[in-house]
């Protein structure tokens, strides 16, 4: 009997603890943590990066507490739909395919994507010419869509994190990789690891796959999308965006 009471007490205790943790007005934001300089993990386990700072600034603008939830990239949208968090601030491009599953705010930045290969390497960038060329991208990205559509014969390799893609480009397991130019510069080309590598070819032009900029995803029909769009405009206007932008980049990445 006594044991039973203790048990009930501890269950009630645990339940109330969970209750306080998920306070009603906290905004749970899904972030990734392996996509420098947009989001990365510091040695002490804390998160930092452009996406993280933007998420925190938006929460402040909305007057809501921010709860950052880490999620690996390929489960990002499913976890949002499953209500593990309410919004995704993780450099997610706004595309038609994704709009079938989620709603987006207006863009909060736009950067083009480019291939990276060994300096001096040369490829025939046609569907036939890329047959067997080992191209690495992050799984479940717009870039996967682009490579599968444009170079169906290529040896496309899908990775769990962008850091793994860079690691395999260095070891020579990949002939080239494709990702966002800013991520590529700060996460790879401007680091020691990226010595001897360079952009290959022009910016990728594929609006169907690559979308129209990077937005914040929310569940279908959630009015949060509109609130976030207003909050983005507000931090653009009051200079918060510029401060965060300058912390990471030399140019304004908001785009036109």
């Amino acid at each position: 009997m006594k044991i039973k009471n203790t048990l009930i007490a501890s269950i009630v205790g645990a339940a109330s603890l969970v209750g306080t943790m998920a306070s009603a007005d906290a905004l749970r934001v899904g972030v990734e943590g392996a996509y420098p300089p947009f989001s990365q993990k510091e040695a002490d386990g804390s998160l930092s990066g452009f996406d993280i700072d933007i998420a925190l600034a938006l929460c402040e603008e909305l007057n809501r507490e921010c709860e950052l939830v880490e999620q690996e990239w390929d489960g990002m949208i499913p976890a949002l739909v499953a209500k593990k968090y309410d919004a995704i601030v993780a450099s997610m491009s706004i595309t038609e395919d994704r709009k079938k599953r989620v709603d987006f705010s207006e863009k909060y930045y736009f950067t083009p994507s480019r291939f990276i290969a060994k300096e001096g390497a040369s490829f025939d960038m046609t569907p036939e010419g890329t047959k067997g060329v080992k191209i690495g991208v992050l799984r479940g990205t717009t870039l996967q869509c682009h490579v599968e559509k444009t170079f169906p014969e290529a040896d496309l390799r899908l990775y769990n994190t962008q850091e793994d893609v860079f690691a395999d480009l260095v070891t020579g397991r990949l002939d080239m990789q494709l990702n966002n130019t800013l991520g590529a510069l700060d996460g790879f080309l401007n680091t020691d690891q990226g010595k001897g590598f360079a952009f290959y070819g022009p910016d990728v032009d594929d609006a169907e796959c690559l979308g129209e900029g990077t937005g914040i995803a929310v569940r279908k029909g959630d009015p949060l999308a509109g609130e976030l769009t207003a909050a983005i405009a507000a931090i653009r206007a009051d200079g918060t965006y510029a401060t965060i932008n300058d912390k990471y980049f030399d140019v304004d990445i908001y785009g036109k």
Binding site: D74, G75, I77, P78, A79, V81, A82, D97, R98, K100, R101, V102, G136, R139, G140, T141, Q144, C145, E148, R157, L158, Y159, N160, D168
Partner: peptide, 23 residues
């Protein structure tokens, strides 16, 4: 599937990733 091989789970993850699905 974690080191890019397209085994059964790899294909499952590919499908989920390509069409942004969960199940």
């Amino acid at each position: 599937s974690t080191v890019t091989l397209q085994d059964l789970l790899g294909v499952g993850r590919w499908l989920n990733g390509r069409y942004y699905l969960a199940y």
